[in-house]
Nucleic acid binder design. Structure first.
Length: 296
DNA sequence: ATTCTTGTTGCATC
DNA sequence: AGATGCAACAAGAA
């Protein structure tokens, strides 16, 4: 579930615990997958008695600044989430990091599927992996021309796959990619080389709009308004909230993709499609007009 | 029982 | 060399 907006929400979840001293640290080191190369003893030693000073989210990554020169990085993976537990409590099965605070509340990282990741860094500056993250999609550095350059380099990839690449679109995941393509009225299987300049501009605008708005409109249960494709993409018999056409579903670039076949028609314009279909361009146009309007 | 999942990575193959 | 595709990872839900 966690994409850009859900990650931002999770980050804020720990805010009530900021500046309280950490009394105890629970890690489950046997799940090496989440901690990977982290030395859990060192992590616990470094955090005990300290306070979380601030936090930031960039795409799907979070970084918590801890007093005493420590940095805690968290990635929620496929199903992770952060919780703030106001009372003393027993960690649940999938609570893999629990910071008990001096006010008896606890900051919890839960991850049912173990696709998440915890990183630890000690030093005067943020860790290198954080400094190397690509610019946020909402920052001025994410420009239309920067996006265009990326699309050009990956000209042969379907748009759906490109939007999932964190190196250019940090924070976008499966549902946001579908939402963006739906709002830009682009067929998810279209290769980026086949986009017109106008379509590239639409894509850029949709990326910015969905990222900005998702954070604003998501509710406490990580749900979105009914006017969003999000709400209907997994529904049985889900329909396009714009034109009520039945949604299509198929794997594209390895991920299940939902789209509206009416709003997002298959691309038949520039690029390779034209090269092979040049000779048949006229017949195609005439075919389009072929179903004569019986009403007229 | 089988198949699916809102993520990422490492490998194989052009 | 760089782009592209895909299996693998874990655990639970349908």
């Amino acid at each position: 579930m966690p994409e850009l907006a859900e990650v931002e929400h999770s980050r804020r979840t720990w805010n009530p615990g900021l500046l309280y001293r950490i009394r105890d640290v629970l890690t489950k080191r046997q799940t090496s997958r989440i901690y990977r190369d982290v030395d859990c003893d060192r992590l616990a030693e470094a955090l005990k008695g300290q306070q979380i000073l601030s936090s930031e989210a960039r795409g799907k990554q979070m970084l918590f600044t801890v007093s005493g020169g420590s940095w805690l990085g968290i990635h929620l993976g496929m199903r992770g989430e952060l919780r703030y537990e106001p009372e003393p409590f027993e960690p649940k099965k999938h609570d893999y990091l629990v910071l008990t605070l001096e006010n008896a509340a606890a900051l919890v990282f839960e991850d049912q599927r173990l696709f998440g990741r915890i990183r630890f860094h000690h030093g005067t500056t943020p860790p290198a992996w954080w400094a190397m993250l690509p610019p946020s999609l909402l920052s001025p550095e994410f420009t239309a021309s920067a996006m265009g350059a990326f699309l050009k380099r990956r000209a042969g990839s379907p748009l759906k796959g490109l939007l999932l690449m964190q190196e250019c679109f940090p924070g976008i995941g499966n549902w946001m990619a579908d939402e963006i393509l739906w709002r830009a009225r682009l067929d998810p299987a279209t290769r980026s080389r086949d986009l017109t300049p106008g379509q590239r501009a639409s894509l850029y605008r949709a990326v910015r709009w969905v990222c900005r708005t998702a954070v604003e409109v998501m509710d406490e249960d990580w749900q979105y308004p009914a006017s969003w494709l999000f709400t209907h993409r997994w529904e049985k018999g889900g329909a396009c909230p714009r034109c009520h056409t039945a949604l299509d579903r198929a794997p594209i670039a390895g991920r299940t993709t939902a789209w509206c076949p009416a709003c997002q028609p298959v691309q038949t314009t520039a690029g390779s499609a034209v090269q092979s279909a040049k000779a048949t361009l006229l017949p195609i146009q005439s075919l389009r007009r072929k179903p004569a309007d019986p009403v007229g």
